[in-house]
Amino acid sequence: MGALIGKKVVQLAAVLLVVTFFSFLLIHLLPGDPAATIIPLGTDAQRTQLRKDVGLDKPLVSQYTRWLGKFVRGDFGRYYRQFGGEPVRKRLSQALPVSLQLLVYAEVLALVIAIPLGILAAYRAGTWVDRFLSTGAFASLAIPDFVLALVLIFYLGVKLKWFPVLGYVHFGQSPTEHFKSMFLPAFSLALAQAAVYMRLLRSDMIATLQEDYILMARSQGLPTWRILLRHALRPSSFSLLTVAGISVGTLIGGAIVIEAIFTLPGVGLTIFQAISERQYIAVQACVAVIGCGYVVVNFVVDLLYTALDPRVRHAA
């Protein structure tokens, strides 16, 4: 068990190095002189300052180690504007909690929708209930999240006025308003995820329900809900867990558009603005943070398998 985690940690470190290296390289993918691209209208002094900050005059490897050293200490560089510019860290520390909240709400919402419906579809496989749910799942997969977001804004926000159409409210400020402001963006992200999760759980669960131990449980007179929830759900949820981990990436990507639509001041909106303002140092930092977050989440998912399946736990 300890050895297994040790191995995983080494893997994690290697992947993190690769991810940060490619994030770092982004700045060198810019055509021409990065300093000129980032500060097209500035003075030579400002450009020289940027070259010095980033260390563009040094060899690539030492640039990377220097950048990485700053990155792990939380120094993500700064914005370059006509007059000064704030550190990227300041923006990120405000944006990250918003994005993480959105991510968690969307995942939880997707699972809350998908798990009961997936179980129901599997239990009633082949009946009209199953067909209805499957059709619904395909339909919600086919709707792009930004279209769904606009439709929801129009009906639930503008017409019915149940939810605010944009903006973010701090949890500390008003929990009710906070959840109201987060519901539409989270739901827009969650629906397509829920459809994928439901289909996945359904097919795994159908396979599990064919297992002998389900028959054994039935022959012992256990109630159906108990068989479904206690006996069938856990062995059926391995692929669901894997995909839920991988979808963190999808949700981060989707969140850029959704955050822009709802003007949620998250990492997505920060990237969106940084790109349009050519603040590539900020883009680089955001991409690196998102990449590392994604890798770490999937590392945690890997560890969760051992919690879910005792066979994995004892194999090591």
């Binding site: 297992e211 002998d212 131990y213 028959l215 054994m216 449980a217 039935r218 022959s219 012992q220 007179g221 256990l222 109630p223 206690r230 006996h231 856990r234 062995p235 879910l308 399946d309 005792p310 066979r311």
Partner: peptide, 23 residues
């Protein structure tokens, strides 16, 4: 359900597959 397990029980061929692996 009142009869199963309480009045009449069953055991199955393959103990490898008839026990729940995660319980």
């Amino acid at each position: 359900r009142e009869v199963r397990g309480r009045q009449i029980s069953m055991i199955f061929q393959d103990p490898m597959t008839a026990l729940n692996p995660v319980m």
